[in-house]
Simulated assay, not measured.
Amino acid sequence: MEHAEPPATPPSRLPWDFHPALTEERLRICARMLANARRDALAMASYELGDDPWSVGCRAFAFGRHRLERAASSGDYPWLEVLDDSAHFVFVIGGNGNGVPVRFYRGAAEEPTERTLKRQEVEVQQLSLALGEAEAEDRAFRLAVETDGAGRVDRVVFLALRGEDRVECFWPVPLELPAEAAPGAAVQLRLIADDGYAGPGQVTDRTAPLPPALPRRKAMPDKQWPQTSLF
């Protein structure tokens, strides 16, 4: 997938410049959860039964929301909270009631839509607590999940937006870390640890094999079968 070019004058601020709670490690973890959620949605898609990009996208959003909710309630990530668990899902990075509200969407980071920019009331209130009213005015933090032609995650970008057309931070979240290696040795990339859920593919591997198919019954040429119709 070819990305559109970031803003002509790249914003110089990084996520943690806005608030210390927005650390690189935390953003990596959240981005990884969203990437794995879309991976699982694609793995479970049944195009023969009618799945399409829209239905897969809905499932990917639900899976991403669920992963973040499960991680927040696990106690393993005390800096992660859920502020709004509705379809306008808002989560918070940072604890003690002073964290930063963030939302995620699938789409081009360079072209956030009006729906993406819309802020929820609880989001505005939490942002004022975290940054102060002046800094929070017209500002929004988003994670943009960009996909390729097959629907797979290509990259996740952290955005700090202000108003309808001002991008103050455009930071592609690194999803991989180079493993430590001796000088001159080949470097093996390793994925960041996820929230402990392996995904649906691991479940199917543990299921018992299907029994052999029963032999077909011979057709009865002299029997008239009733006609059926599909509704």
Score class of each variant (00 low, 15 high):
A21L: 11
P226M: 03
G97N: 09
P221C: 07
Q202T: 04
V56A: 02
L42D: 03
A208Y: 05
Y105R: 15
V90E: 14
L189D: 10
R162N: 04
C169F: 03
V145A: 10
A60L: 00
L161T: 09
T204P: 00
C169N: 07
T147I: 08
D195I: 01
Y105A: 13
R152Q: 08
L22I: 07
E146Q: 09
L34M: 14
V102P: 06
H19Y: 02
T23P: 12
S86V: 03
A144S: 13
H3D: 15
V124W: 04
Y47F: 15
A109Y: 03
N36F: 01
D154W: 12
T113R: 15
A182P: 11
E111K: 01
A31K: 05
N36C: 04
A4W: 07
E24M: 12
E114I: 02
W171H: 13
G64W: 09
A108R: 10
S74K: 03
A4R: 13
V90S: 14
Q188P: 05
E5Q: 15
L131C: 06
V167Q: 03
F158Q: 05
S55L: 14
R13F: 06
R155E: 13
A160G: 06
D195H: 06
Y197C: 02
E110S: 09
R59T: 15
P211I: 05
D148Q: 00
A109S: 12
D222I: 05
D148S: 00
G99A: 10
E123I: 12
D17E: 04
K223Q: 11
L191T: 13
E137T: 08
R152V: 02
V82K: 05
F91C: 11
R162Y: 02
N36S: 06
A182Y: 14
V92N: 06
M220G: 00
A45R: 13
A136I: 01
W54K: 11
L49R: 15
D138I: 01
W54Y: 13
D154M: 12
F63M: 01
L131G: 05
D195T: 01
R152Y: 02
D194Q: 11
P221A: 07
L210H: 07
F231L: 08
D51S: 09
L34R: 06
V187T: 14
N98T: 15
A186F: 09
G132R: 05
G94L: 02
V122R: 03
V167I: 10
R67M: 03
R190V: 12
P211R: 08
N98K: 15
G57C: 05
L117D: 07
G95C: 10
G97Y: 09
F63W: 00
V203I: 13
G107V: 06
E176M: 09
S12F: 01
C169H: 04
S86Q: 06
R59Y: 04
F63A: 00
G184I: 13
Q202L: 07
Y197K: 00
G184S: 14
A185S: 15
L22W: 03
R13V: 04
E5H: 14
A193T: 11
P53I: 03
R106V: 06
P7C: 00
A87M: 15
R67N: 01
I93L: 11
P226V: 01
Q227C: 04
F63I: 00
E114Q: 12
E135P: 01
L68H: 08
P211Q: 07
L159G: 10
R32C: 04
A21W: 15
V153P: 01
V157C: 08
H19A: 03
A179H: 11
D138M: 07
R39F: 04
A35Y: 04
P7H: 01
